[in-house]
Design a binder for these strands. Structure first.
Lengths: 146, 146
DNA sequence: TATTAACGGATAATTACTATCCATTGAGTA
DNA sequence: TACTCAATGGATAGTAATTATCCGTTAATA
């Protein structure tokens, strides 16, 4: 599912959007991080290389990526959105101690979708599964402190 | 799990919060609706009976309720929070057509929690499961239009 | 009933995000 | 390769939900 810049350029063009250095840079940054950055984190990651980068550009770019399926938007109960370049729908888990957000990639949720469809009578189209707890690192730190 | 006003008053007091007519009114309104209102919806529901009610009071009250376990806050990917007086953790489902949000009460998720704990190595403390689709009513309307 | 810390309501402030404006640029076309 | 122009990027103003502040009022305990 990894997308190279060639592929990103094609998808942008095929949806009538121009291929610009800023958009490629945003995608590149998002693809090479595992920390599910929000707009401001992305902006700060890009600033050193693109001193003229604007926060508004990050937002506009992410809106496009969301629309054409190059990224997904996460709303994990924080005060800002986070972004993920992995497009397969998958659960996320957030550490209540350090705030990191991890993917849960191997999770099989078809049975859940069926159960929910049956219980709700809805015609299901999507889901967002968020879990909360303490990450392995923070569990380790706590042990050391004792 | 239904909580009467007596119980609400006791819980407020036991946490060092005063029992006020506004707080009881907010709880009462939240408890007697199934539509998972946001702050503004609650405010508008209360205005007829409490013309002096303030939106800020609704927010402050809901913050307290969240803290002492009288209500939970939902973040379903909309631009505002919704509230729910049902405290058993349960999934929610939102209709993409009309925006209504329903509870899914009968859902058993212990197996899911275990699977996620194993996959993530996190020490799990909570979860929020959100589903999206089209509610039975909207499915019906669409049929009529054809 | 008196005392006082907490409260409610009005409103200002904050913050994430979106819209607008205009000079610049990507990309199709000649 | 140069031309044309709508789309774009960046600066900044605006929006909307939420939070903080201020002060007269009130619930709770003595």
């Amino acid at each position: 599912m990894m997308m190279d810049m060639q592929g990103v350029a094609e998808i942008l063009r095929s949806h009538g959007f121009k291929v610009t250095p800023q958009r490629l840079a945003v995608y590149d940054a998002l693809q090479h991080t595992t920390e599910h950055p929000n707009a401001e984190m992305l902006y700060n990651m890009l600033l050193p290389t693109y001193p003229a980068m604007s926060l508004a550009t990050v937002y506009k770019t992410m809106e496009i990526f969301d629309k054409i399926g190059l990224a997904q938007v996460l709303n994990i109960g924080e005060d800002s959105y986070r972004y993920d370049a992995r497009m397969e729908n998958h659960p996320h888990i957030r550490c209540n101690t350090c705030g990191r957000v991890d993917d849960i990639m191997e999770f099989e949720d078809e049975a859940i979708m069926e159960a929910v469809a049956k219980l709700s009578d809805y015609k299901l189209t999507g889901r967002q599964l968020y879990f909360y707890g303490e990450c392995p690192k923070c569990q380790g730190k706590k042990k050391k402190l004792n």
